[in-house]
Amino acid sequence: MGFRDRGIEIKTPEQIDLMRVAGRLVGETLELLRAAVRPGVTTLELDTLAETNIRDHGGIPSFKGYSHPPFPATICASVNHEVVHGIPGGRVLADGDVISIDCGAIVEGWHGDAAITVPVGEIADDVRELLRVTEESLWRGMAAARLGGRVCDISHAIESHVRSEGRYGILEDYTGHGIGTEMHMAPNVPNVGRRGRGPSIVEGLALAVEPMVTLGSKHTDLLEDEWTVATVDGSYAAHFEHTFTVTPVGTWVLTAVDGGEQRLAALGVPFGGR
């Protein structure tokens, strides 16, 4: 492992393999939570399910106790107009809601970080389209990454896809990030940007890419709990995230259960997993 470009952590292939263990645990936990989302379930019940699964498989929740004030839970559970960092509690999910679930785990000192937005029962057509556009922009962003390219190639691909699909708000104050021995590391990965800018994409760089998109304004407020970020105009939001790397063979999505092979193939991107 080495450091370059203002503290960017570069991992060995063996260390990337360890990150895959943490990433797969995150991916499997999110799939467990996706299946558990339904009208009548509370966000705290989802949090308990996530913590149990992570610990039962040898992991440590990344988020619990993180930063100041210390985050009190294993997952971020953000409902409807809450974009990110919602705190799980007694809120009961209802038909027509959407919930963004962000999850992180540490295994043997290495982090994985990913997020999904899940419909609760039947949701409005424009909200369902928001989820589709946001998730697709994540995959388009990762698909744009190449060894020798630049981090903002990812940003440009995310922004271009979202803009091409309609009038959506793209959060600019919150970004993706480097990841490895810490959850949040250099470099930042913006969700808007111009191609050819930012640090170089090199073998051993791991990034968490996370577009956050709204049905209305890009502007947000931080709520009184000092964690939850919500849209100013009350519009619904979606958040999708994966941790990935680029190997000499291709792209490897460390937090996707299948490594991202199926979605990458659909975009014509070589699979770089082992």
Rank of each mutant, 00 (worst) to 15 (best):
L254P: 05
N80C: 06
T214P: 07
S217Q: 11
A124I: 00
D125H: 13
G176M: 12
R274W: 09
P88F: 10
L33D: 03
T117I: 14
G193S: 07
R132F: 05
I99K: 03
A36V: 01
E51F: 02
V26W: 08
L264Y: 11
A238Q: 06
A35C: 00
H81Q: 12
V107G: 02
D126Q: 13
S100T: 10
A105I: 09
G259E: 02
L130N: 06
A256E: 15
D221P: 02
T243V: 11
A237K: 10
G198A: 13
R140E: 14
I99N: 03
V246C: 10
A22M: 00
A22E: 05
G59H: 01
E165F: 03
S217N: 01
R38M: 06
R150S: 07
S200D: 15
G178R: 06
L44D: 10
T231I: 12
R38Y: 02
E9A: 10
P69W: 02
F3T: 14
V213P: 01
D5G: 07
T228L: 12
M183Y: 00
L171I: 09
I75C: 11
S235D: 04
V246D: 06
G149E: 02
L30F: 05
G250T: 03
E172H: 14
V257K: 14
L33F: 04
I87T: 01
G149S: 06
P187L: 10
P70V: 03
G260I: 11
A144H: 07
V107D: 05
V162R: 04
G268D: 07
L215K: 01
P61N: 10
P211K: 08
G65D: 02
K64S: 04
V118F: 14
E9M: 13
F71C: 00
M212D: 02
P88Y: 09
I154H: 03
V107S: 07
V232A: 13
R4Y: 09
S67V: 08
A73Y: 03
D233W: 03
D17E: 13
R195A: 14
P39G: 06
V246R: 13
R132W: 00
R263L: 13
A256I: 05
H57T: 00
R128H: 12
D113T: 06
F240Q: 07
V213G: 02
D97K: 06
W227K: 04
D95V: 10
A157R: 07
I201F: 08
V192I: 15
R150V: 01
G58R: 13
V92W: 06
G27Y: 10
S78N: 00
N191Q: 14
H161F: 15
D225G: 11
G260C: 12
R6W: 11
A238E: 01
I170S: 02
A115G: 01
A206V: 15
G272C: 09
L30P: 07
V249P: 00
L32F: 07
L223R: 14
T175I: 07
L33I: 14
P190T: 06
W110V: 02
N80L: 08
P270K: 09
G27R: 08
E165Y: 04
E51M: 11
S137D: 05
A237T: 06
E241C: 15
R163Q: 10
V209W: 02
G234R: 13
V98M: 03
Q262V: 13
R194D: 12
T245R: 08
A114S: 15
Y168M: 06
N80Y: 05
I179M: 11
A145I: 03
P88A: 08
E172C: 11
A256Q: 11
G89M: 01
T29C: 15
G273W: 09
I116E: 15
D225C: 08
